[in-house]
């Protein structure tokens, strides 16, 4: 994300946004394919929808087709949930929820259970559009950028933060710190 100074404490930045049009989704899941390929190491060396940071929730007999992107991790489940009826179709709150949480297996690395989060395919050189948008020909996903003035104090949280947080909540900070220290020592040697 790029930003420039506006005035003390505030700055402009570009907000990258993916618009989702549920009426246009054909349920092909190309977005999952492209996302998991792009985030493989090396890029496109493997595919696996379970590792995708975008998933299409499909209930085909109810005509529910809902692409959602992975957001933040939460260690807690929601206390209560809503069901939304939109145009006569029922959607559970989870269908719209981007959070990687204990109540479902979405947005977790299948091997480690660590949370996944959409990074809008930030890379060097930058992509014109995130991969999922690039392969979504029916325009269920479209990409927009807009400017917003934000407080500079806001800290960006990336995958390492999220991963570590989740490890800490699972195993406790002491254990994680100990292991990190251990790894630091061995890799130096």
């Amino acid at each position: 994300m790029t930003g420039e100074a506006v005035s003390n404490g505030l700055k402009k930045r570009i907000i990258k946004e993916i618009k989702v049009n549920l009426d246009k989704c054909i349920g092909c899941r190309a977005c999952e394919m492209a996302c998991s390929g792009f985030h493989a190491e090396p890029k496109f060396s493997s595919t696996n929808p379970a590792r995708s940071r975008i998933r299409v929730i499909v209930e085909d007999r109810k005509d529910v087709y809902l692409p959602i992107r992975a957001g933040d991790y939460s260690s807690a489940e929601c206390a209560g949930r809503n069901t939304y009826t939109i145009n006569g179709k029922d959607y559970s709150q989870c269908s719209f929820c981007t959070v990687s949480c204990p109540s479902r297996d979405l947005f977790k690395e299948p091997d480690s259970d660590l949370p996944l989060k959409c990074d809008m395919c930030e890379s060097v050189p930058p992509l014109a559009e995130p991969m999922c948008v690039q392969v979504c020909c029916c325009d269920a996903l479209t990409y927009v950028e807009r400017e917003e003035v934000v407080d500079v104090k806001e800290v960006r949280r990336d995958e390492i933060d999220l991963g570590l947080e989740s490890l800490i909540s699972k195993h406790g900070i002491e254990k994680v710190a100990k292991i990190v220290a251990q790894i630091a020592r061995t890799s130096k040697g």
Binding site: S45, S46, N48
Partner: peptide, 9 residues
Amino acid sequence: TKDVYIAQP
């Protein structure tokens, strides 16, 4: 939920 590998990614 397993990976499928690509020869020339």
